[in-house]
Each structure stands twice: as structure tokens, then as C-alpha cells.
Design a protein around this nucleic acid. Structure first.
Lengths: 211, 211
DNA sequence: ACCTGAACACCGTTCAAGT
DNA sequence: ACCTGAACACCGTTCAAGT
């Protein structure tokens, strides 16, 4: 009955499409075989086993995260643009990014972005260990924020809701604050606000560092 | 053969101990039953099913994250101490925290910390929406950083290693920077440095906010 | 070189039956 | 009220056998 031409790339494509749509848990070897119209065991011939199939998908994703082209008039603005670009790219493939993360390849995936950050931090006048700290702080900030943000999206039904946590009675001395915390956070705004604040503080130490 | 006195709490204790030591994937209903010396099906009588068993463990963890007692002489210092305390508590139960996170209860778990942050930000002179932004920015920063940090620990063998990524040839104009990035990051230091920078910038906008 | 079905050792869960 | 073993429908993986 053997269908003649199953290739490794076909297997990877079908697997990637499954993972993109419904997450890695939805990728079963039997389901994938059904999708491809082959016997389960054929897949093993092409990709080894489930684990190395996932590894291959992750490898692909790391390659796809191409070079970053920062835009803006100042180093701070260009760093902000890097943050924005990364946010968009990460949000386009949430499942795959999570898998990259699980395999500890986040760092390698962010190398192009890291190099862009190095360039900008350098242009802002930071050097040596201080520049390295700034680059890493921004990188951790961006990646960390996106991890938290994604978690929030994945579970929209919080219990108790934020609005219960922060009813006016909870902070009687500042109802405006309570109201603001009761409203859902605007992640994009908070993201840019946070990165801007961090970058401002980090670059402020720049111009020929004090002893 | 029925062993007489299996209780729900015994089941939860045994499950928690398994998860703490070897992660949720190591918690199988059959393994847990063996640990407890009962039939698998007894567990179902006490906790429903695997999913609600995990839910119960998560609920416990959320409760355990007790009140936060900030220390320090200024709001900024006390916020830093909150960051330090959270870091320690989260690092003591990594698997359970990850499960809290997966279930989207991070926010609820951080309520005590959030209230402490509200207090400090308020003491620093921020009010209303601006105060809310500051609280959330710091909260996202702390949680995000710890997620990234934990990921790094889980996968110590990066490929390629940072030292390969940043050999002197990669940044010939600033060998000190290349050397710093080639060295492994010191997470505790980077964590405090980042939070301090962010807090500095956020609180700088405080004293009776400009139009 | 590539595909196949049968079989193995695992899962979580249900259920009728015990006491 | 609480415990039990048998059975079901899933997994990933191996292997001997086909072409």
C-alpha cells in the first residue's frame, strides 16, 4: 500500500502546522500519521522519534527569527523599536516560541536582537561590562515581559477577577489607583512604558562613566 | 485488602512531594498510588482526577505565598526588598510556581506583593493611573525576569555557548564588552540592577506630576 | 531505501462490584 | 463511605517483515 514519496520536509511541515494551530500537546505521532496518510512507523523512519521531531521544529523557528533592523533617531528610540519588533515576531508564533524557550535556546534565538542592542548601547556611549549589563537587562526585560503577557492571554478567566481584587474599598485613599488596577492592563502600552523607563535609566549612566 | 485511612490530605501531601522533587510530569496516578500503597482508583475517589489534583496543589501554593514585609529606608529600597523576597520565594518552589503560572493564577498569587508595591509607590508620591502603571511595570519586570532566569537554569548546556557567540572577533571595537557577554550572566546582580534602574526611572516622575 | 502491521509498556479514566 | 480489579481508549516506541 506504501505511498511512495513521504519526505522529511513533508513531515516537518505537517507537524509545524499542527503545532502552530493547536500547540505541541496536540501533536501525536498517530494523529500526524493520519494527517499524512501514512503508517505511524514511517514517521519514525524520517525523524527518529517525537522528541527529535520537536527539536527540528524548534531549530527551524530559531533560523526563521531573522535579522533585526532597528529604526529611530536616537539609540533609545532604536532600542524601543527592537523591543517592538521582537514583540510582534514572538506573538506570531507563540507555541513554537514556547518550545524554543523550553529547550533553552531562547538565547541563541535572540542573538540577532542582542547584536542590535549591543550596537545601540554602544552608540549611546556605554562601554565594556556596563554596556553588557545594559544589553542583558533590556533583553531579559523584553523576553520576560512577553512571557508574562502570553501567560495572561492564555488564561483570560482569572479568579478572582482584577475588578474584585481592586474594588474602591481596597484602596480608599486613592480611588483613581484602585480604578486603574481594576481595569485590565493594556499590555502594549505597559510594555513600551516599561522598556522606555528601563532604557532611560540605563543610558543615563552613559557619558564617560563616573568612578 | 483495603488500607483503612487514606485521606485527601495524604494524597495531596504525597503528590506535592513528588511534584516538588521531580516536576509535574513525574506525577502519574499509578505512581502516586504505589507511593501511597493503595489502588489507583482510590485516589480518584478522594481528588476526582489528575487535573483537579494538580489544581489543588496549585491552590495550596497560592495560599502559601504569604504576606510580604518590605524593609528599607526609602520606597525605592523597600520595592527592591519586595523584589528580593519574591525572588527567593519563587525559587524555592519552581515546579509549583510554573504550575500556578500555567493555570493563569500568577496574578492572584502576587496580590500580597502587589499591595505592598502599591503602598510603596504611593509613599513615593505617585497617584492614580501613574501609580498603577508603576506597580504593574515592576510586577511584570520581577515575574518576567524570574521566568527567564529559571529557563536558563533548566538548560545549562546552550548551543552554541555564549563564549562562542561573543568571542573577541565578534565585537573588535569593544573587547571588554565581548568579554563581559562571553561570561555567564550573574542573575542575582542583573536582577537587582534591572529592578533598581526601572524603579529609579518610574519614581523619578513622582513629585506632584508635571502636566 | 522506505514502508508496514503487530506488539509492548506505558498512560488517565470509568465502572460494577465489593465491604 | 471508601476501596478494589478489570477493562477501555489512548499514548510513544520497537521490531521483524515486507518491497
Amino acid at each position: 500500500m506504501a505511498r511512495s514519496s513521504l519526505t522529511r520536509d513533508e513531515v516537518l511541515d505537517a507537524a509545524a502546522s499542527l503545532v502552530k494551530q493547536r500547540g505541541p500537546a496536540a501533536l501525536t505521532m498517530r494523529g500526524l500519521a493520519a494527517e499524512l496518510g501514512t503508517a505511524v512507523t514511517s514517521i519514525y523512519w524520517h525523524v527518529g522519534n517525537r522528541e527529535s521531531l520537536l527539536d527540528a521544529l524548534v531549530e527551524r523557528t530559531v533560523q526563521e527569527m531573522g535579522a533585526i533592523r532597528p529604526v529611530g533617531r536616537s539609540p533609545a528610540e532604536r532600542i524601543l523599536s527592537v523591543a517592538r519588533i521582537l514583540r510582534r515576531e514572538l506573538r506570531e508564533r507563540p507555541h513554537l516560541i514556547a518550545m524554543v524557550h523550553e529547550r533553552g535556546l531562547t538565547e541563541r534565538m535572540f542573538l540577532p536582537a542582542q547584536q542590535a542592542l549591543v550596537h545601540e548601547v554602544h552608540a549611546a556611549g556605554l562601554r565594556g561590562a556596563r554596556a553588557a549589563d545594559a544589553v542583558r537587562a533590556v533583553q531579559f526585560q523584553i523576553v520576560g515581559f512577553l512571557l508574562v503577557e502570553r501567560n495572561r492571554e492564555r488564561s483570560p478567566a482569572q479568579s478572582p477577577a482584577e475588578s474584585e481584587l481592586w474594588d474602591p474599598a481596597a484602596a480608599p485613599h486613592d480611588p483613581g489607583l484602585a480604578r486603574a488596577l481594576a481595569r485590565p492592563a493594556d499590555p502594549e502600552r505597559l510594555f513600551l512604558l516599561s522598556v522606555r523607563a528601563l532604557v532611560t535609566a540605563l543610558l543615563a549612566t552613559a557619558p564617560t562613566a563616573p568612578g
